[in-house]
């Protein structure tokens, strides 16, 4: 019985894994998440801008625009690679599927953009093709990847912002976080994002509860065995303890004063180790995908 339940448990975990198994290996996201410059072609300023704008975008809409540069694709089709990367990293909000991936394969002289299924109506693959051609192609062909990414990222950001009717936070994102800007800004939130996080937490809690229930069942069924009827009756003493009480436990040792704390910050995600080769001065907690997915459309470089 225990064996059967263990097998069922293993199957449950296996089924929870993504159903698509393309066999394509993609890199893991960096701590910055929104930019992964594995090909080392982007400047620190560009990376900072990408992260700052994404923080605002994600906070207000759940959308994420992730920029990834790699050298090569290991023989994979760039569209398949982008699809795998998008879904592995879960770009965009789980509820709205409003992620957008920009992938540059520098050594292959190719690029690709892929939108989440929630953005297909707003930014079709034809639109992506046009945007890439208008804003990225010229700089990409001239090997000025940084300039190209800056331009095309801005366009993507503007498109998604206008779709969600985000107010213009301006370029002073940093100053509004640190010291506030002179002009008051009004943020129009189309949909509260809190509930997306709430339901995601609920989902994980549900999975955890299910696992606990199964473990409890294993322990309950595992304890059960065939009833054994003793051949003889045991006598029970009423009012008398069956065993003599043991000696009293020794007194606890006197408490030592705790040593002084060596470090100050607990929790959070500050780490000096970044996925990209260059250290960024941008600080903040660890970021991750919002649970979004793509159907695999997108557009690439015109040939």
């Amino acid at each position: 019985m225990k064996k059967i339940i263990s097998v069922l448990l293993a199957c449950l975990f296996a089924l929870s894994l993504p159903a698509f198994a393309c066999g394509i290996e993609v890199p893991k996201p960096t701590e910055l998440f929104y930019v992964a410059d594995y090909a080392d072609v982007l400047s620190e300023e560009t990376e900072t801008e990408i992260v700052s704008k994404n923080d605002v975008l994600y906070q207000q809409t759940g959308a994420q625009i992730v920029v990834v540069t790699v050298d090569f694709l290991d023989g994979n089709d760039i569209g398949d690679y982008a699809y795998r990367l998008f879904n592995d990293w879960e770009i965009g909000s789980e509820e709205k599927n409003n992620g957008l991936l920009l992938l540059l394969a520098i050594g292959e002289e190719n690029y690709y953009a892929l939108q989440g299924k929630g953005l297909e109506d707003r930014i079709s693959s034809g639109d992506l093709d046009q945007i890439l051609y208008d804003y990225l192609e010229e700089d990409f062909a001239a090997e000025d990847y940084d300039a190209g990414v800056q331009k095309v990222f801005s366009v993507f950001y503007d498109e998604i912002s206008s779709y969600y009717e985000m107010s213009d936070m301006g370029d002073s994102i940093g100053s509004s976080v640190i010291g506030g800007s002179d002009e008051p800004t009004q943020i129009i939130v189309k949909q509260p994002f809190f509930f997306g996080t709430f339901f995601r937490v609920l989902k994980y809690l549900g999975i955890a509860v299910l696992v606990i229930v199964i473990l409890v069942l294993i322990s309950v069924f595992g304890r059960r065995g065939p009833r054994r009827y003793p051949r003889y009756r045991t006598t029970r003493y009423r009012g008398f303890p069956r065993r003599r009480p043991g000696p009293p436990p020794p007194p606890p040792p006197p408490s030592r004063p705790s040593p002084p704390r060596m470090g100050g910050f607990g929790g959070g995600g500050r780490s000096s180790s970044l996925g990209s080769r260059r250290r960024s001065s941008f600080s903040g907690g660890r970021r991750s995908g919002g649970g979004g997915s793509s159907r695999g459309g997108g557009a690439g470089r015109r040939r």
């Binding site: 093709d129 046009q130 557009a299």
Partner: peptide, 18 residues
Amino acid sequence: LFSQLAEVASRERTARLD
């Protein structure tokens, strides 16, 4: 022309992955 081709290729891909 290129936008149309991109859209067709994209839809073919999503249909294949559906």
